[in-house]
Amino acid sequence: MSHLSNPLATAEQLYQKTSTNALPIELQDSIRFYTARLTQAAGILLRLPQDITAQANVLLFRYWLVDGLLEHEFSDISAATLYLTAKISASPRSLRSITNVYAYLLSPTPSDPESYYLSESSYISFRNRLLDIEGHVINALGFNTHVALPHPLAVTYLQTLDVFSLPGNKGKDVAKRTIAYLNSALLSPQMLYLTHQPASLATAAIYLAAREIRVKMPEVEWWEVFDCEREELGFLVVGMGSLEGVARRGREVWGEKGWISREDINGELVKLGVNIGNGGQVEDEEAQMARLLDEKVGDA
């Protein structure tokens, strides 16, 4: 069984969906980073085990290589992948919980409970959107919902390297940093989980963590034991370390915003003077009227 490996993105997929996209690469990065972060936050609030949140983010990135980035509202696609991943796991979450958590995360003023109250009608419309997107996701992924994660592998590797027998708490510290690097890499717009197998990701995270905690690793090329080539390791070490820059650039553009929407992207595009047709699905007047009407009825 292919438990330990993942389907990887083809070069063609990566090229077509990123380089030939009319969307500036910086904005693509922002969409990936902020949406993955939203999923992560929702996973924490939903008290999902981290492996499920992680799988959801991997599925989300995979989906975006098949269908376009702007196909759905980012928060909707994030919620839908999280719902789908939890559904097939041992810790499913109800649609109600998911929608409530996202309403909370998306509310402009989380201190004010009224701002994240979800009326029955907006719940139903959110739910229907999720279920619709779910279908798009499983179709786009061809039902390949299995995701192999590097986290458990990393722990095994650390044990193999005898890291936990180090004096003091150093072993545990290295393990913590390793897991932290792996979780950060989930947010990386470089889509490291789609381009590298779990074994390599685990090895690179261990390399970074050991260097940071100043734990001496074997003198030899130990990564080769874990099926990771020197070149790949070098790439991943750089990739995993580059997230900070992405976050910083994001902050420059979006300020303190915790998440971004398609509307934000459109606004930014206007600023940049770029006009792309497919993304600007601003709600037309009629649809807006219908929605307001629905909400009225629901609240009554």
């Binding site: 069984m1 438990h3 085990p49 041992a90 986290h151």
Partner: peptide, 21 residues
């Protein structure tokens, strides 16, 4: 109970099943 994930990759976190599921 819940569905045991194919746990060849030893994923942690298959906690106890959720009530009512």
């Amino acid at each position: 109970g819940g569905w045991g994930e194919p746990n060849g990759n030893g994923n942690p976190g298959f906690g106890p099943p959720n009530g009512g599921y």
